[in-house]
Design a protein around this nucleic acid. Structure first.
Length: 584
RNA sequence: GCGGCCGUAGUCUAGUCUGGUUAGGACAUCGGCCUCCCGAGCCGACAGCCCGGGUUCAAAUCCCGGCGGCCGCACCA
């Protein structure tokens, strides 16, 4: 961290963003509330174009789908997802110096309790343990307050006078899991398949700062990709297998180093560093995504999360980080193997079977040894409990029962002693038409606001003391500016006609005749308009215009007639600037 | 949430210590003049003491509280 009196890039970008309408803090006229920002006229368009780029790369091209779901959800959802338990921390405050600490950290440090133990403790148990081990404030030795939970979900009630508790979603993922059964039917029971939500999420951060980087309300892009755990191969791997990734592995981090290794996707998988092929695939895609947003590959890395850093649902996780001028490495996306954790949780709480059925290629007939209870004997022996016993026996493993019979002459099914006379073992033919299982989930998740900020930071350049936002042409909020060279001799009229024409062709265009031509170029450079089209005296003679490139300030001359098609190709990266006309 | 520093037009800033005329300037913006390709020049306009309370004849200035920002601590599932 730097103590800069000189303003850093973040400050410069914030100032520009506020002045020109990319982003700024919300509710400023009432003093502002930290953790909330507005995206302005330019920022909202740019952010939407970034989200559209995600839609193109991750959904359209892969045949996956986007859905739109509510932000508020009933409490049970966050019971099932584990957030109500995990999305909070027991904290204590020192009565003397007022410093606050995580209670579990204190217990681990001063009472030598392992983390898996402190994790399970209730508030009461934590309070007792703190007392028992005489834990004091590690800073000043003062007495600590009773532990209290701080829940980082926004809580509300649903309906008037209702005691139905609801929460703002801290991630959009749960709204997908909850609907999985129906969605799976709608895509005609296809696996693998995936659904994305691009929408707001809420997290009641204790003390958010850092402008658009850490918000209480932000746009999350969650893609939940469902796979058969027994068929985890990625069918699209060849598209990315030679893509290189900068990986900071957990084993390296445990040694206290953050040295990245540069490996191809293929290598990272074969060495077992990335456990899931689909995870690796999405990471590679994310790398390309960020490169397309202007972040060079050496400013990107994937850092493997250590066990205790991972979310409660994750079995392996990488964060994609981008190097930023002010904060160093900052997370822009996360890749988690969520296994069947979430669907299993919703099965448990709702009682709905979320398993999918996958038919075998051929119906298999298998001989199976099963337990057949001798009902008459069981009835006589267990009387009232007979049904309970039958239920238990239907779930036991026959081989295990047989083993116990051989070993000790009986088998304990719960509290009931089963004797060999209670059951028969029979060979039965079982037709296996398929299998039922809970799909596993690979989740790429992006913070849209961070992506937008990152794109701005990497676009921000200074040339001859002037700011140029070198935004990739497909996310620039304004595509074209049409400018009469001077404000007389019929040039404005000619320019306005061209402006209308280009608007009609579907471009986002600005018209501007105020001030000198240089001043206007500068203004449009500052908001990242890729091309300026200038109407000059030559235009009046031969219907040609100059097109000026934002980044090189070079110009070409082109006929008005050729513009619409050429420009469409340019903005789809099918044509270079030099090929828009003849060089000047 | 704690501590330190800070808060004057859209932006940057003078003035605050030592209370006192109409809060001064620059850039930006808008209008006009000028202008044949890179924030040119001239004229004019718009626009400000974070909010609340207190002290005082008088508060941008002193005091208290709040809000916000930056940095550090903590937090970031």
């Amino acid at each position: 961290m730097r103590h800069s009196m000189v303003s850093d890039k973040y400050e410069k970008i914030s100032a520009l963003a506020r002045r020109r309408g990319f982003f700024w803090p919300s509710y400023e006229i009432y003093g502002g509330v930290s953790g909330f920002i507005n995206w302005g006229p330019l920022g909202a368009v740019m952010k939407r174009k970034i989200e559209d780029k995600f839609r193109d790369m991750f959904l359209r091209r892969l045949g996956l789908y986007e859905i739109e779901t509510p932000i508020i959800g009933p409490e049970v959802i966050y019971v099932a997802s584990g957030h109500l338990k995990s999305f909070r921390e027991a904290m204590v405050e020192c009565n003397r110096c007022k410093k606050r600490f995580r209670a579990d950290h204190l217990l681990q440090e001063f009472a030598n309790l392992p983390s898996h133990e402190t994790e399970k403790m209730t508030l009461k148990e934590i309070a007792e343990a703190l007392k028992r081990h005489r834990v004091k404030c590690p800073e000043c030795g003062g007495n600590l307050s009773a532990p209290q939970y701080f829940l980082t979900m926004f809580k509300t009630t649903i309906g008037p006078y209702s005691d139905a508790v609801g929460y703002g979603r801290p991630e959009a993922a749960q709204t997908i899991f909850v609907e999985f059964k129906r969605l799976y039917e709608q895509v005609r029971e296809k696996l693998p398949t995936g659904f994305a939500v691009i929408g707001h999420a809420l997290r009641n951060e204790i003390s958010p700062r850092q402008g658009p980087m850490r918000l209480r309300e932000f746009t999350i892009i969650d893609l939940e990709f469902f796979v058969d755990p027994e068929d985890p191969c990625c069918s699209l791997l060849e598209q990315v297998e030679d893509e290189t990734l900068n990986l900071v592995l957990a084993e390296e981090r445990l040694k206290g180093s953050e040295k990245p290794v540069k490996l191809t996707v293929k290598e990272a998988l074969s060495k077992g560093y990335i456990k899931s092929e689909w995870q690796a695939f999405f990471m590679a895609l994310a790398k390309r995504f960020l490169m397309d947003l202007g972040v060079p590959e050496d400013k990107q890395r994937f850092i493997e999360k250590l066990e205790w850093e991972r979310a409660h649902y994750s079995s392996q996780g990488f964060d994609q980080e981008v190097y930023l001028d002010r904060w160093g490495w900052v997370e822009v996306s996360g890749f988690n193997d969520r296994t069947d954790f979430d669907l299993r949780g919703h099965m448990r709480e709702s009682g709905v079977d979320m398993r999918v059925f996958k038919p075998h290629e051929n119906v298999r007939v298998r001989k199976e040894r099963v337990i057949e209870p001798v009902i008459s004997v069981i009835g006589r022996t267990f009387k009232r409990d007979a049904n309970k016993v039958l239920d238990l026996l239907s779930k036991v493993n026959p081989n295990e029962v047989e083993k116990q019979f051989k070993k000790q002459g009986y088998y304990m099914a719960g509290e009931f002693k089963i004797l060999p006379s209670h059951v028969k073992f029979v060979e039965r033919e079982v037709k296996e038409t398929g299998r039922r299982f809970i799909p596993h989930v690979i989740e790429p998740s992006f913070g849209s606001d961070r992506l937008a900020y990152v794109a701005l930071e990497y676009a921000y350049t200074v040339k001859d003391g002037r700011v140029i936002l070198k935004l990739p042409r497909d996310i620039a909020p304004v595509q074209l500016a049409v400018l009469p060279l001077v404000q007389k001799d019929g040039l404005p009229e000619k320019a306005r006609a061209l402006y209308k024409r280009l608007i009609d062709e579907g471009f986002s265009v600005e018209y501007d005749e105020a001030g000198s031509i240089g001043k206007r170029y500068a203004r449009f450079d500052e908001i990242g308009v890729p091309l300026c089209i200038t109407i000059d005296y030559q235009t009046l003679k031969d219907e040609t215009v100059t097109i000026r490139d934002r980044d090189s300030w070079r110009q070409v001359r082109a006929s008005i007639k050729s513009l619409p098609e050429a420009l469409w190709e340019y903005f789809r990266f099918k044509r270079n600037f030099e090929d828009l006309g003849t060089s000047l």
